[in-house]
């Protein structure tokens, strides 16, 4: 395979006062939904010359998860609620009291029929995307860490066919759920992404912050941060591991050689041989991994901590959201 060199070019950016934690794209359009530390959910057309976000409504705390199912957006928040929004009529449809503690991530199946949420109550819940009725309540993550502190359930992702759902927690435990039965189909352990400091500072940092299935559904990419020396800061190296999850075998390990910080979002490009990873510390980063060559094809510094990313319909448009900023980049091959 001939080596190709990707480049990244900033197309436009949009400054925000808040920290944007979650971004979702309405397929077939240039419309995006985002939310963050001001507790609001916004709708914006990023194709317009001067994008003007419109408020859909608000939660009672940080908005930390967004997914699109059909023409609806589902937002999740630290207030424990999921809110369904109608994007055609720009209105709130209904609210579900989904979790007892902070919701960390929300995902939708590719057919738009199912939504999943994970929260610090350590439960993964699966919802009917149309009605908001609960389908499954999946419990496979310990509520406390081995060191007697509260654990956290950070990330979830559907397999492309919607049959499997992965969830990942603070101590590096991943469960892959079979949604035909509601039972665990497999588990993975990624302890490197959790740092407990037993002597210097006596608390912890890290956790699994991002998950993504490959387009064929056979691989699961897991993102976070490697072991941290000084846990006052996000100074561990950005880390991605990829597993053949059915065999529980790790096929790829990107231990990081350039950027420090958390990998906050993973997205496989449609071809399946490229994996996008974004995240950050005080600054942000974007990395593009070539799975066939097991190398990073692109490692770019981004001027803000990136919390979420969406790959556009054309696969060469990348939209980033993070600390005080939304930005569109063009990926050139």
């Amino acid at each position: 395979m001939a080596d190709t060199r990707e480049t990244l070019k900033l197309v436009k950016d949009l400054s925000r006062k808040e920290i944007v934690f979650a971004l979702a794209h309405l397929p077939g359009s240039s419309r995006f939904v985002f939310g963050g530390s001001d507790s609001m959910v916004y709708d914006v057309d990023l194709a317009s010359a001067k994008p003007e976000p419109r408020s859909l409504g608000s939660h009672d705390s940080y908005v930390t998860g967004l997914a699109i199912a059909q023409r609806r957006a589902i937002s999740g928040s630290y207030d424990g609620r999921l809110i369904w929004w109608d994007l055609d009529y720009q209105e709130r449809l209904f609210t579900v009291e989904a979790h007892a503690r902070w919701i960390r991530d929300v995902a939708a199946s590719s057919d738009g029929k199912t939504v999943a949420s994970v929260a610090d109550d350590m439960v993964c819940r699966v919802w009917d995307a149309e009605t908001g009725e609960k389908r499954f309540e999946l419990r496979g993550h310990e509520a406390v860490t081995p060191h007697h502190f509260p654990s956290m359930l950070y990330a979830c992702a559907f397999s492309p066919d919607g049959r499997y759902l992965a969830s990942g927690d603070k101590v590096g435990h991943v469960v892959i759920w079979d949604l035909t039965t509601g039972q665990a189909a497999g588990t993975l352990e990624v302890p490197t992404m959790y740092t407990w400091d037993p002597s210097q500072r006596r608390h912890s940092i890290g956790g699994i912050r991002s998950l993504a299935f490959s387009p064929d559904g056979n691989r699961l990419a897991i993102g976070g941060m490697g072991k941290v020396g000084n846990i006052d800061h996000l100074e561990g190296l950005a880390r991605v591991e990829i597993f053949d999850w059915r065999k529980a075998e790790r096929s790829h390990e990107y231990a990081g050689d350039t950027f420090k910080g958390l990998v906050e979002r993973l997205v496989f490009l449609a071809s399946g041989d490229r994996l996008l990873a974004v995240g950050g510390t005080n600054d942000g980063f974007l990395m593009l991994f070539d799975l066939s060559q097991k190398s990073a094809k692109l490692q770019e510094k981004i001027g803000f901590h990136v919390h979420d990313a969406v790959v556009g319909d054309a696969s060469n448009s990348i939209f980033l959201a993070g600390h005080g900023k939304l930005a569109e980049y063009e990926l050139k091959v």
């Binding site: 502190f149 500072r201 006052d232 800061h233 100074e235």
Partner: peptide
């Protein structure tokens, strides 16, 4: 009780240590 110096992930740190 050390160490509360949460330059990164302040909320996670306090979520862990304040309940204690």
């Amino acid at each position: 009780r050390a160490w509360w110096d949460s330059h990164g992930q302040n909320f996670e740190t306090h979520q862990e240590m304040v309940p204690e």
